[in-house]
Design a binder for these strands. Structure first.
Lengths: 209, 209, 209, 209
DNA sequence: AATGAATGAGGTTTCATTCAT
DNA sequence: TATGAATGAAACCTCATTCAT
């Protein structure tokens, strides 16, 4: 029993190693630079071995994203559950959780953006597409519920909560987008200032006095 | 003289054809489908001939982006020049110009976002990187000047104009980003509602009463 | 003693299971689909275990062929032993035994033809080649003895019995060959008519009035 | 003009070289030993270049077979056109043409048998399958017409000409089949004696006195 | 100036076989 | 004895780029 369990743990570990490696390469060199060869090298296994853990290359990446999106889901779930207690800072709390996710898992965040926007998703087998789709939906739905609470309880301006939820999320999305393109172009970024001012502007625009 | 000039014009024409072809392929089939073969086919020249007009494939793409960003630059330049006259609606006017660019040249908009963030940029030779960098800078700088005018003339809240300029731009960026990823995932989008509410929120948050 | 014996029986059983599995896969999915993985799966053992029973993949296949050729050998042996009693229908009896083998074990028949002609044989180690060679020789030699009896006792035309034996056997071989290729190409086959007319023609040509 | 034509000739030549190489490898080492690498080596071109002449590996082989089957078709066509003149030796003439084809193009003959019987044909793209199918049909149809003439004009015994045509063809087929398996197993073959006796037996059985 | 032809470098995947447990 | 895990070696195919004409 112990043996079987240990084996499973080891296998899970290797899976995780591979996913991390893929993400690291993504971060350092970009999507098209991710090759099985390089992933294998970092994990110190053979290319063939990777196929023991994953059906193919895409699966590595998709799983990495989906897995780590759960961290984000948890953050949002937590906020939703504590919405009463945190109602006075609802928008700020939400914003802080966006930041938390981005700063703790920047590669995941970026990769996930990349995937969702790239045509790559077309050529994905059905199951992987479904997998990534679901993971995204969960996040959207949680955000929506949080904002809905804010609107219904009169904390936020009166408006369609779904739309407002998109406005807030896209504000953050855009900031990261820009930050990333600055990194790529090796321009100097002002991410922190931007994100703080954005929160201030949003607060003025969204929160009722 | 006439001959030399004509030759140059013809060469320029061919260059433009190639860049258009690249963009068209991007739009129809996505980034990874852009191959020299396909570009050549659309231009009705041979693959080898493309190397007469461009040093390599990257040059085609970069030039395409840079070229087509000019439309956007013009829109912003126009606003800046008429800032006095339009001061009462400065934010809205800016926003409308974002929309104008996106709706008139959605492929270009998307493609240029894509390219700017893509890892493609990494392995670019210095000169190309500089080229794309400058083109981006022009847009940024114009936005900055417009917002700076708004802040200095007391139209907008007091804050760092550069940062505010980023906040506004990234709001729009994020909306498009999300819209695009919805298209890819074939979910239903609410682009118009989102963009309108965003403007409303921004107005409340940014414009002084 | 008992234990050792039982072990040997079990090992033999496993060997047989593996060979059957290989043949079954051949029948259902064709030669190139035979993989150690699939064989192991059907036997409900691990891939690695197969190497306890066989030195390598080829050995499984060769042994399968050799084993299953024995049914045919028996049919021919029986005819040879009863040659006196059946002398008036010797050719027909032989032909019927060909048909018997083919119709009772069509997969085996096809598989063994396939393997014998396949390039697989080329790279075989000496011992395996010898093994398959001997198995084939037994069949040939029995056919030869039967025909020789027919020629020597004046039933058949005067000729080299070995050669005649080949003529008869190859007539049948060709019919099956054609039938099989028709199946593959999903054309309509006339196997029965062909095989009956072939016997008639052979009788006229071979049997003395 | 001359240039274009020369280029085409050269390209055709290269195609032919590749097909020959593939056949030669088939002959020497068997189907599964045919690799693009080896073909390229023999042609003294790069692997990649082969893809200029053929869409993929299968196309090389199929084309080789189909191309060279035309030689056989021509032989049969010629006999059919001269059936009146050659009526007294119709069966023998047919048989000689079988021999002619086999001896002049033994690899083609074998490869064609191999392909038609192998499951490989299943995984072939539609166009290639059609191509090989048609080429086979032409041969069958010509044989049929020749035998039909023999039966209708009273040269041969009364029977279904299609079936008789199969009996004769399969007799030959079987002989080659056996010969090949002997080569593979490095047994001594008696191909000539067998084929001559087969003709004699067939004559007695088929041709009316 | 224009291009057909050629290719090197690289990527993904499969599978028989070995080995440590 | 039995097996999960690991891997080397290969195979197919694509594409940006160069070169001879």
């Amino acid at each position: 029993m112990g043996i079987i369990e240990r084996r499973k743990r080891e296998k899970d570990l290797r899976r995780e190693l591979a996913m991390d490696a893929a993400m690291a390469i993504y971060k350092e060199e970009g999507y098209h630079a991710i090759t099985m060869e390089k992933i294998a090298e970092r994990c110190e296994v053979s290319r063939a071995s990777l196929y023991l853990y994953f059906k193919n290359k895409d699966e590595i990446l998709i799983n990495a994203i989906v897995d780590q999106t759960e961290y984000f889901t948890d953050l949002l779930q937590d906020l939703y559950e504590n919405r009463e207690r945190l109602k006075d800072n609802l928008l700020k709390e939400l914003w802080l959780r966006f930041i938390d996710f981005y700063e703790n898992e920047p590669e995941t965040f970026n990769a996930s953006l990349y995937f969702q926007n790239s045509e790559m998703i077309f050529n994905l087998p059905e199951d992987l597409r479904k997998s990534i789709n679901e993971s995204g939906s969960k996040v959207v739905s949680l955000q929506h519920k949080i904002i809905e609470y804010g609107v219904k309880s009169g904390l936020f301006i009166e408006c369609n909560p779904m739309t407002l939820s998109e406005v807030i999320w896209t504000s953050f999305l855009g900031i990261i987008q820009l930050e990333k393109s600055k990194q790529v172009l090796s321009r100097k970024g002002h991410y922190k200032a931007t994100r703080d001012l954005a929160l201030e502007v949003l607060s003025r625009g969204v929160v009722k006095k």
